[in-house]
Design a protein around this nucleic acid. Structure first.
Lengths: 126, 126
DNA sequence: CGTGTATATGCCTTGACACGTATATGCCAT
DNA sequence: ATGGCATATACGTGTCAAGGCATATACACG
């Protein structure tokens, strides 16, 4: 029994910032590799490699257009993330309520404008 | 030299399976380190280290109870994930509808039952 | 105070993965 | 066929994070 199938969860996939950037790009419409490359200002092999990962994990699919490949989103993996998130939703909506709405609004346009602050790592040495 | 401030996104945090397991555990109620350790059958230092990461990224907070530390969830990071997801929600809810419900169900218990199959990338070798 | 229990931290090793650079594949046009 | 463009892959490298193990801190109680 041969080859181990790399079971990477959807979470590992979206942990990579460049991949999230690509996904966000594709929300508006399908794009070719070259277009992604230009918009995100990253080297072409990098784009291709990330697209490969995204494709193999089901986040995107591609069709051929001459020499171009057009990539577009696929819904399932996002739903999977959403499903995971669901178990916490009860919890957090209990905690906040108006804020929830607020966040829901901001979500419309930006992707990851988060500021993950501080982590007051107090490194005391003894 | 220096203390680089590691700005890890919420996505990197939840990319780790054990951390997701811990978070799922905490949905029901707050738990001590020892309880987590026993239920998840992982060594105590591992639990503590993951809890540290979760704490510093805001996913959990702790209070002291004698020698125990009780950990519980905090809502903000989850909202952040949700906010990111929101931009895709329009998209995917257009694509599917009944399937969504289905997934929502499976989400109840497990986290990453991904089967990432093959991705019919037809790799032809010449 | 000393012992036991609960949790945190330090060090080290290992493996995964993202990147850069180079190159291969594939398709089009002339 | 030949050259050129678009995209994919191979290989070597550096970085970083997770785990194991040992140990330190903190508290409780006799």
């Amino acid at each position: 029994m041969g080859y181990i199938k790399r079971v990477e969860s959807v979470f590992e996939i979206i942990a990579e910032p460049n991949r999230r950037a690509i996904l966000s790009l594709l929300v508006s419409s399908e794009q070719s590799v070259g277009e992604i490359e230009r918009q995100l200002r990253m080297p072409q092999p990098t784009v291709s490699k990330h697209l490969r990962v995204l494709r193999e994990s089901g986040f995107v699919e591609s069709t051929v257009d001459a020499q171009r490949r057009l990539y577009r989103l696929r819904p399932e993996p996002f739903q999977e993330v959403d499903a995971w998130l669901a178990q916490f939703r009860r919890f957090w909506s209990a905690h906040v309520d108006a804020l929830e709405r607020h966040l829901d609004h901001m979500a419309q346009n930006h992707a990851n404008a988060k500021r993950t602050q501080a982590t007051r790592t107090k490194r005391k040495k003894k």
